[in-house]
């Protein structure tokens, strides 16, 4: 099989941690508006982007996720005032760490998506799926099975 064909067949698994107040609601709105995006995206609900521990992300990569998105409220709009600022700092560090250990930092994306941005949610999810598709499967951290 050629490399091109492989990328064609490759269906990435992307885990999206969405904060309950903005991004999860944005994802709901994408649903209500029937805005389709790839089924590769699977959402885990968290109260706030600040709830997401780097451990969860590493675990996702280890368990075979090819990409991870953390989505929260826009800066300044966090339901819990400052959660997304902590998240932002935490994940820019984590991206550097991923790079340091040899995992493409592009596999982790952090986005701010509000409850009213259903179409943006769909777009962001489409974009990351396309990107990860090009990047190929995550082999570095995945458990050998």
């Amino acid at each position: 099989m050629s490399v091109a064909a492989k990328t064609q067949d490759f269906e990435p698994l992307i885990v999206a941690f969405c904060c309950n107040w903005c991004s999860y609601a944005g994802a709901d709105l994408a649903g209500t508006g029937r805005m389709s995006y790839p089924a590769n995206i699977r959402v885990i609900r968290v109260p706030c982007s600040s709830r997401v521990s780097p451990n969860f992300i590493l675990r996702a990569f280890q368990r075979g996720a090819d990409g991870v998105v953390v989505a929260g409220c826009h800066p300044g709009d966090c339901h819990y005032v400052s959660g997304n600022y902590h998240a932002r700092r935490r994940f820019s560090m984590l991206r550097r760490f991923l790079e340091f250990v040899g995992i493409e930092a592009e596999r982790l994306e952090v986005h701010w998506i509000s409850a009213s941005e259903g179409s943006r949610f769909a777009q962001v999810m489409q974009d990351i799926t396309d990107k990860i598709r090009v990047l190929g499967p995550n082999r570095k951290l995945r458990d050998s099975r």
Binding site: L13, V15, R42, I44, V46, P47, R51, S53, N55, F56, R59, A60, R63, G64, A65
Partner: peptide, 15 residues
């Protein structure tokens, strides 16, 4: 939304 629960969710969603 405990650590154990979220890790279990990650495990299950990645299966």
């Amino acid at each position: 939304f405990s650590n154990e629960q979220l890790l279990a969710e990650v495990d299950a969603i990645c299966l």
